[in-house]
């Protein structure tokens, strides 16, 4: 799939908002791509344009060599999983999942068989006769996934699908989604504002900010080699440090304190805080810039107010 120079501007009484400012992206078959960005960065709009629920002002969407830009949503080989699941409340789980096949006039027996397969795939055997309001959040999520996957789309779009689940369930569903995606080999375009989720699951991450891609790359690249200050601070909360007029991104875990000869920068410990498995230490350099270092374990023999020497093994120069 290819997105070529997509733009979109919303008009309202308050004026115009340029939501997408020329989006270009190439997605390989079977790739797990995440659009990562804060709310309001335009990622949902982009997803809705790919689904056909919104029309782009300019640009085109190419799927399998065919231009699908002008196709109605129901004619696209693309399915979407909505943020609130959008399950049909007046249909049972079975009817919800089988809806796409019913529309394609697939024979009843085959419909039934495939629905059963899907229920097994998302581990909801025996739930077919229930109505959505009798399901938990995680179960609704699985039904939504099954309802989309039964159509065997070329591309599955997921709009913050785990946003409404609690942390534990979210972690579990992350693994499950990834497992499903590998098993089925379907291209996933996944939206989230959670950088940990993005790094966990994706083959490729596109960091989006104010309607443009700040950086597109593998989780490693985006995490360790951020190209812009936005990417550096949004993904993994890096320290931004100005040294000799140049800007560097510095990961908290890459900062060493009193470890060897390269720790040449004098710094004062301002604050220590324990953040679940990690100790975070706020330090002030002699020129007033502040950095956060992290350490595993709960204790560290530095006291607040103490002056020490720090250094770093890796710093990424950014724009």
């Amino acid at each position: 799939m290819e997105l070529v120079n997509i733009t979109k501007t919303f008009h309202s009484a308050q004026g115009q908002t340029e939501v997408l400012k020329g989006i270009n992206l190439t997605i390989e078959d079977g790739e797990f791509v995440t659009l990562l960005g804060a709310s309001g960065c335009g990622k949902t709009t982009l997803l809705r344009i790919i689904a056909g629920l919104e029309e782009a002002d300019t640009g085109s969407i190419i799927l399998d060599g065919k231009d699908i830009t002008a196709l109605e949503p129901y004619k696209r080989d693309v399915n979407m999983i909505f943020q609130n699941y959008a399950l049909f409340p007046h249909m049972t789980v079975e009817e919800n999942i089988g809806y796409g096949l019913k529309l394609k006039k697939v024979p009843k027996a085959i419909q039934h068989k495939k629905v059963e397969e899907m229920l097994a795939l998302v581990q909801l055997e025996g739930y077919g006769k229930r109505y959505p309001d009798k399901l938990s959040g995680g179960q609704k999520q699985r039904v939504a996934i099954a309802r989309a996957l039964i159509n065997e789309p070329k591309v599955l779009l997921l709009d913050e699908p785990l946003g409404a689940l609690d942390l534990k369930l979210r972690r579990q569903m992350q693994l499950e989604l990834k497992r499903l995606q590998r098993k089925l080999g379907i291209t996933f375009i996944y939206i989230t504002h959670d950088q940990e989720e993005a790094i966990n699951m994706s083959d490729k991450i596109a960091v989006m900010h104010e309607g443009v891609f700040e950086q597109v790359g593998t989780p490693n690249e985006v995490y360790y080699e951020p190209k812009t200050s936005y990417v550096a601070s949004f993904v993994g909360d890096a320290n931004l440090l100005r040294i000799d007029g140049e800007l560097y991104a510095l990961r908290a875990e890459d900062i060493q304190i009193q470890e060897g000869s390269h720790c040449t920068h004098k710094a004062k410990v301002l604050e220590k805080s324990f953040a679940g498995g990690q100790l975070r230490i706020l330090l002030e350099l002699s020129d007033g810039q502040q950095v956060t270092a992290s350490r595993f374990g709960i204790d560290y023999d530095l006291k607040e107010g103490e002056v020490t020497q720090i250094g770093w093994s890796r710093a990424q120069k950014i724009k």
Binding site: A86, G100, L103
Partner: peptide, 12 residues
């Protein structure tokens, strides 16, 4: 959004 979902699943 339910209508959007239906249209996404193939309904005119």
């Amino acid at each position: 959004r339910l209508l959007e979902a239906a249209s996404d699943l193939g309904a005119g």
